[in-house]
Every structure is written in C-alpha cells, then in structure tokens.
C-alpha cells in the first residue's frame, strides 16, 4: 500500500499537471502585485527558463562553458536592436534572435568537440569576453557601454510588465515541460550518456559530435528566447547585464538549485535573485555571500537544494514504510558532475 501511494505520488510529480497548476497560480498571484514586485517576479521567471537551458549544457551534458551570459545578451541585443534599427515588431525580432543565438551556440560547440574541461571553460570565457567587447565597442550598432532603450511589448490591455510577465510565464512553462519531456526520451538520454562517460557513450552508438552540437543548439535557443524576453522586461539593454559577473550568478543558480535537475533550475533563480535583490545596495557583501555560498555548496551540498526538497516531498509518502528513510544523497566527496544517477521529477 505505501509503495502504491509512493508510485502515485511520483507519477503525479512527473505529470505536466503540477507545473501547469503552479504556473497558473503564480500567474494569478503575479497579476495582483505592484509593478516593481512583478518586475522581480518576471525576472525570476525568465531566469528559470535560462537556467533550464543552461542546465542542459552544464548539468545534463556536462559541458562546462562560460558563454551563456553572452548568448543571453546576444538574444536581448538582437531582439532590441531589430526593433530599434529596423522597426520590426517584437515577435519577428525575438524569433530572429532565437535563430541567430542558436546558430552562435552551435558554432560554440565546435571548440567543445576538440577540447573539454578547464580548457573549454577558458576558451568559452574568451569568447564571452570578446562578445562583451563587441557590445561595448561597436557603438554604431549597439550604442556602446551606455546601452539603449528597448521597446516593451504590450498586449491584451495589460501594462508592459504584466504583458511580459504573462508571456514569459507561458513560455517558461512550455520550455520547462518540453525539456523535461525531452530528457526522458532517448534523444535526451544521450546528453546524459555523454556527460557520464563519453567513450562509453560512443561505444554504445551515440554520435558524440552530433549530440554535443544538439545540446549546445537547444541550450542556446533557450538562452536566445529568454534574452529576447529579458530585453522587453528591462526596457533598457546595456552590456553589464550580460557580463562575466552575470555568468557567475547563473553558475551559482545552477549549483545552488541542483546541477542536472529540473527542480533545481526553478529553485536556483528564486533563491539567488531574491538574495540579490535583498543585498543590492551592499558594498561588497553581495559578492562575499554569493562567493561563500558557491564554495559552501560545492563542498557540503554538491547536489544542491533540489534533492533535499524532493526528499522532503516524497519522504512524506515514504515515511509510512518502515526503514526507508529518505537518503539525502549528498556526500562531501561527490562532485556535482559525477557519480550521479540522473534524477528528474517535478
């Protein structure tokens, strides 16, 4: 009987009903908020989408890259600049941005085919810095370090924050469900196979080159989409929204939430962005707390908050059976990117 309840609970966690229900509740709640709080909530929603994409690269395929903030930025800049320079409407602009960023991300996969680990991290870092350099110095097009005003989307008689909130929430839920579904298919499992053991994956017939490129492309497409939404939310696009510091914040979101977990991609942005808002005007404390948090998580909780929360939920159902105490599953020595059974729930 307890097992049956357990199974039931698990099935419920894995069905698309729960995320949609949560999204609807968040949507109804969000529309009652004042514009500033709604702005923060929308930022979290957009970052959830971005981190879901980043997790494909970092957590599921194990490719340690630093270019995501830059891809996110290219998405935002393309969406904004097409509207500003060519007067295109929002939808075609963001669609073009997604295509462009996907192409850029696929190109980034080329170095990843030759190098890995630290070398890949540094190479993509160099690319990201170069992109930031272009954003700052190509002033004719990008308006340089000062940034530019990006037009905001407005629909259905809502104000601009509400519009972008609703659009982001719908798209984030869709991306979340799609990616979660994708990772249960053989297509998605190949990412995990490459992360866990590239040679073994190749020996089992996984086309490593192609699968890596696919992981990069999907991840980049999501970054482009979230970047476009972000430009509309901010209303003002400047290079410092996409610099290395932002990239490190994204890494912190992934590690704090739980690397390679879907639930972690949701928790990470909530925790980090809330903390960031709270520490916004502190001189230095933001970096000290986030830096310390990153070190502490890698050392003591390398699998992040997601497994803890999952166990808290499923543990309720499990506690009825006798000695089936929930395993927190973290150990000091387990690196976040290894010895992990792939877990996906919620």
């Amino acid at each position: 009987m307890p097992e049956k309840i357990m199974k039931h609970a698990k099935g419920w966690l894995n069905s698309p009903v729960l995320p949609i229900l949560i999204a609807v509740l968040v949507g109804a709640f969000g529309l009652t908020l004042n514009p500033y709080t709604l702005f923060l909530l929308t930022r979290i929603v957009i970052f959830v989408m971005l981190i879901v994409g980043l997790n494909i690269m970092l957590g599921y395929s194990g490719q340690f890259t630093f270019a995501h903030a830059a891809l996110f930025g290219v998405g935002a800049y393309t969406t904004g600049l097409l509207q500003v320079h060519l007067g295109l409407p929002f939808v075609p602009s963001i669609m073009f941005a997604v295509v462009l960023v996907t192409a850029a991300g696929t190109l980034l996969a080329l170095p990843a085919l030759r190098i890995s680990g630290i070398h890949l991290a540094i190479a993509t870092l160099a690319v990201a810095q170069a992109v930031t350099w272009v954003l700052v110095n190509w002033t004719d097009v990008t308006f340089g370090a000062g940034g530019f005003r990006a037009p905001s989307l407005r629909m259905f008689g809502m104000d601009k924050t509400q519009t972008i909130f609703v659009v982001s929430l719908v798209l984030t839920t869709a991306v979340y469900l799609l990616v979660r579904q994708l990772l249960t298919t053989s297509f998605g499992r190949r990412f995990i196979a490459i992360r866990d053991n590239q040679v073994a994956a190749a020996a089992n017939g996984v086309h490593v080159t192609r699968v890596k490129a696919q992981a990069f492309a999907i991840s980049a497409a999501i970054a482009g989409l979230s970047g476009g939404l972000y430009s509309s939310l901010l209303g003002f696009v400047a290079p410092e929204s996409f610099n290395l510091e932002q990239m490190i914040l994204m890494k912190i979101m992934v590690v704090v939430g739980g690397i390679g977990t879907m639930l972690g991609s949701v928790i990470g942005p909530i925790v980090v962005l809330t903390l960031q808002e709270w520490l916004r005007d502190s001189e230095g404390w933001l970096e000290i707390i986030f830096g310390g948090m990153l070190v502490a998580f890698v050392l003591f909780l390398p699998r992040g908050l997601a497994p803890l929360i999952l166990n808290a939920i499923t543990g309720k159902f499990r506690s009825q059976s006798v000695d089936d105490a929930p395993q927190t599953g973290q150990s000091l020595n387990a690196a976040p990117s290894e010895n992990r059974k792939d877990e996906e729930a919620v």
Binding site: I248, K251, G284, I288, F290, G291, L294, V295, S337
Partner: peptide
C-alpha cells in the same frame, strides 16, 4: 570541475572583500 567552480566562488568572495 568542482574545484574550478569552488575557486570561482572564492574569486567572488575575494572581490567582495576588496570592495568592502
């Protein structure tokens, strides 16, 4: 890779201390 991530954290921490 864990070490790499942890040193990124340290880098942030040191920068915060400098700023402080």
């Amino acid at each position: 890779m864990s070490l790499l991530i942890a040193t990124i954290g340290l880098s942030f921490l040191v920068k915060g201390l400098i700023r402080l």
